[in-house]
Write a protein that binds this DNA or RNA. Structure first.
Lengths: 154, 154
DNA sequence: TATTGTTATACTCTATAACTATA
DNA sequence: TATAGTTATAGAGTATAACAATA
């Protein structure tokens, strides 16, 4: 469940509105819970990406995390200050910086990922297991994830 | 479809993240399209609510539109300035103001609602008719809309 | 004392353009 | 010339607290 309040009926005829309403509630709950780990949602996202691709350049981390490179700058500043991630010089191109997950960062991420999974269960617990899978499938399809990549691109 | 970009794979394991990603894209498209009618998303929401409950007080309009009463103030200022809605004195309680949809407001709303329906179709066209209904149903359930009202309240 | 609308403030998220240093 | 990272700024969205008029 997403809290006590309900979305305004007059607007639920637009599925897009319903989608936004649910997402905003979910994101707010997520943000509150993440704050307990001292993380913003975006920081959690970047740490999660770094777990898979530690050592990538800032540009590719930004792309993998779905945020703007300029937004990543501030996020990394904050993570670095707390010793959770670090920037290093790129060995071949002095314009580039590689980004690395530190050990404290990995430790915090493990616990935060557990929290995230827990919250995910809570938020969607009003749906049956099968409905949750349906929703996941529909959203993946909607987002274009399960479609072949655009062939016209170069 | 929600545009060319895809959500970051590393984070799609969290359904809540997928939900937020889809919602944000949908909302951005919606905002761009509504701007053609000269409306912000919130303004469109308020006009839609007013179509059903013209003459209600600001508090009840705010609740029906799912926004904060303080947010409604600025929204109404903007709508009133363009002659799309108007505030009137409440006949019985001088603290209250009733809110009314004007005729130009109703006209604009009709055209904007058409636009909204069109966009809704576009955004969800990657889903079959049945999948769209499934999604609508799942989101309604998730948001608590199809559950009985809380019995513990007074 | 409590409520309605108002005002002011602050914080998040996102987008964009310009700057620097390097290539 | 173009690219990577940085900085600054602006806009929309949201939340909150305090205030004046009125009940």
């Amino acid at each position: 469940m997403l809290g006590e309040t309900r979305p305004p009926e007059a607007l639920t005829r637009y599925t897009g509105f319903l989608l936004s309403w649910c997402a905003e509630r979910s994101r707010t709950l997520f943000a509150h819970r993440m704050a307990e780990s001292g993380l913003q949602v975006r920081e959690f996202g970047v740490l999660t990406v770094l777990a898979d691709s530690s050592g990538a350049t800032q540009q590719s981390v930004a792309e993998a995390a779905g945020i703007d490179p300029s937004t990543l700058v501030a996020t990394l500043d904050a993570l670095e200050k707390r010793g959770l991630a670090e920037r290093r010089a790129h060995p071949e191109d002095r314009r580039k910086r590689t980004v690395h997950l530190t050990e404290p960062g990995a430790t915090l991420l493990t616990s935060a990922a557990n929290t995230a999974q827990e919250l995910n269960r809570e938020v969607f617990k009003s749906l049956s297991r099968q409905e949750q899978q349906q929703l996941q499938r529909l959203l993946r399809k909607l987002s274009g994830l399960d479609q072949p990549a655009d062939q016209t691109q170069h």
